[in-house]
Design a protein around this nucleic acid. Structure first.
Lengths: 152, 152
DNA sequence: CTCCTTGCAAACCGTTTGCATGCCC
DNA sequence: GGGCATGCAAACGGTTTGCAAGGAG
C-alpha cells in the first residue's frame, strides 16, 4: 500500500472517530474494519460481500453489525448506496465528488461517471417544479463495451 | 368515466390481447383487471396496492398473480417500475413518452417530468464510454413545493 | 460503572415457486 | 382436451430486531 493511500485511510478513520464522538457513540473495531473494507474496495459491495471481507480478519463479526454500521455510515454521509431493482443495494465510500452510474445488464459491471452539465440540468428541472433537490440517483442500464464485443 | 378515457382503456386491453396471443398465452380476467387498475391509477402503485384494488371486485385473486402479471407486463413494456431504496417497487402504466421522477422524501409524492435535453445528454455520456444504453432511471429526491410550505 | 455495541437467532417483508386445480382456446 | 394461468401455502433472500453478553469511555 502506498504512503499516499495510507494517509487517505487515516483521514477516513479520523472522520469516523470525530463523528462517533460528536454523536456520543463509541468507536469500535467493527466500525473501523467495515470502513477499511470500503476504503480498499475496487468496486461497489453488497452488505454480504463486506461481511465476508471483514470476516477474513475477524471471524466473529455478525451480518447484523454490517447492516447497522452501513446504515449509520450512510446517514452520516460517509458512504452511499445504489439500489438495483430487486437485486438489493451496493455500497461505496464517498470520495469527493458525487457521481452517477452506468450498469451493464450482462456482466453487472458498474461504470462511474460525473457530468457537470447533468448536475446543472437537474437543478434547472427541479427549480421549474419548485422542488428542493437534495440528492439524486441516475442509473443508466445497458451493455458495456466488453460485453458488446463478446456478443458479436 | 369519459368516453375518451374509455377508448384509451380499450386500446390497452386490445394491446394486451394481441401480445398475449402472439406469445401463445391466454387472456385472463385477472390480467385484464390488473391492467384496468393500472390504467385508472392516479399515481404509482405497489404490487400490494394493486392487489388490494383488484380484490375489491375479485375477492379471490392471489398476490402471486399480481406479481406474475406485473413481471409479464413489464417484460412486454406495457408497464414500468421504479424502485426506491429498500421501500420496494412501484408500477405505472406506460403512456406514451418515457419520463423521470422527482420523489418527495417528506410525503412520498412522485412528480413526473420529461426533459429532452436530459435524454440527449445521456446518449452523449453513454457514447463516450462506448456503452450501449438501453434504459435509464433518474430519481431526484428532495422536498416538494407543498412540503416546503408546511415546514415554514 | 454505564451505556452503547455486538453476535446470535428469530422475526420480518417483499417476492418467488411448487403444486393441484381452474379456465381459456 | 391440452396447456397455460391461478390460488394457496411454503420457501426464499435480504434486512431488521430483541435480547443477553461484551466492550469502550
Amino acid at each position: 500500500m502506498s504512503a499516499e493511500k495510507q494517509k487517505d485511510l487515516e483521514l477516513y478513520l479520523d472522520e469516523l472517530k470525530t463523528i462517533v464522538k460528536k454523536r456520543g457513540l463509541k468507536y469500535s473495531t467493527q466500525r473501523e474494519q467495515i470502513l477499511k473494507v470500503l476504503f480498499n474496495a475496487k468496486n461497489h459491495l453488497t452488505p454480504e460481500e463486506i461481511y465476508q471481507e471483514v470476516k477474513k480478519e475477524n471471524t466473529s463479526i455478525g451480518l447484523a453489525t454490517v447492516y447497522r454500521t452501513l446504515s449509520f455510515l450512510e446517514s452520516e454521509d460517509i458512504v452511499s448506496s445504489i439500489s438495483f431493482g430487486s437485486e438489493g443495494k451496493k455500497y461505496e465510500l464517498n470520495r469527493g465528488e458525487h457521481h452517477d452510474h452506468m450498469i451493464c445488464i450482462k456482466c453487472g459491471k458498474i461504470i462511474e461517471f460525473f457530468n457537470e452539465e447533468l448536475e446543472r440540468l437537474q437543478e434547472e428541472i427541479a427549480k421549474k417544479e419548485n422542488f428542493k433537490l437534495i440528492t439524486h440517483q441516475m442509473n443508466m442500464y445497458g451493455i458495456c463495451e466488453e460485453c458488446q464485443k463478446k456478443d458479436q
